[in-house]
Simulated scan of single mutants.
Amino acid sequence: MLIKSVTKEEKLMLENKFGRVDLEEDENPRLRFQVGMLDRFDHCLSESEAEQLLTPQSNLKHEPYFLKVFREMYLLNKSEVYVFSKELLDPENFNFKLLRKHLNEKDYKILRSLVKNKEALLKIKDYEMLSFFVRFSINTICFSNFFFTRIGTAIIGNYDMSFPIYCLQEESFNESLRIAREHNLYIRR
């Protein structure tokens, strides 16, 4: 498992490049980024569509597509990604008794270890660990922000498998759009 604490220099680099690590708090991301929504649907769902289409079974069906998108972006980014998950700082964010019943043993142990270490910003050089954080965001267990620094792209974990994507350049946005389409997903503007 290649997961490391982030140095002060790396955190500063992320903040210089993306403005902040808690991008979900940025009130005006369009001032700095090309912004879209990585999603399984090509449009924003109406209330009735959401009731009908947003089901646990649908999440399971689409999870592999999201994992493929993240894997391709990870490889484009030279097999590293920075992950920010402020929920890891507080064990009270997790009902470990309930999670124990729903997670496999390996994922449960990883989560316990991460919460115990109390570090919200991590550098990951292992796809298995990246997929752990992606799956946890997809299943709303623990949301994370994913920073692909070499390609100038950040993806924000969010509800309903609808993840904001921020790209520093139009070229990065178009590449992300191509990757999403290739894996049966959409990026809406």
Rank of each mutant, 00 (worst) to 15 (best):
P56Y: 06
D90K: 04
K118W: 12
I156F: 07
K97M: 14
F41N: 13
K86V: 02
Y82A: 09
Q34Y: 15
N158E: 09
D160S: 08
N28P: 04
F163N: 00
R150V: 03
T55W: 03
M73T: 09
E24P: 11
N28G: 06
S5R: 07
I151N: 04
F132M: 04
R189N: 12
L99M: 14
Y166I: 04
F66H: 01
G152P: 02
N104G: 15
L12E: 15
S176T: 08
Q57D: 09
V134P: 10
L54V: 14
R32L: 13
D39S: 15
K17I: 07
Q52V: 11
F18P: 01
I155V: 01
S172C: 13
N139C: 10
L177N: 13
C167N: 02
P164M: 01
I141M: 02
L122F: 01
P56L: 03
F70V: 05
T153M: 07
K109D: 11
M13Y: 13
Y74I: 12
D126L: 10
Q57E: 11
E10A: 07
L114G: 04
P56G: 03
L89G: 03
S113D: 14
E80G: 05
E87A: 06
E182F: 07
N145L: 12
K4M: 11
L38G: 14
I156L: 05
D26K: 14
E24Y: 08
R20D: 15
N158W: 03
I155W: 05
E128Q: 15
V134D: 07
R71G: 06
E47R: 07
V21R: 08
R71D: 11
L130Q: 07
I124K: 00
E80P: 03
S85W: 05
N77R: 10
E10Y: 03
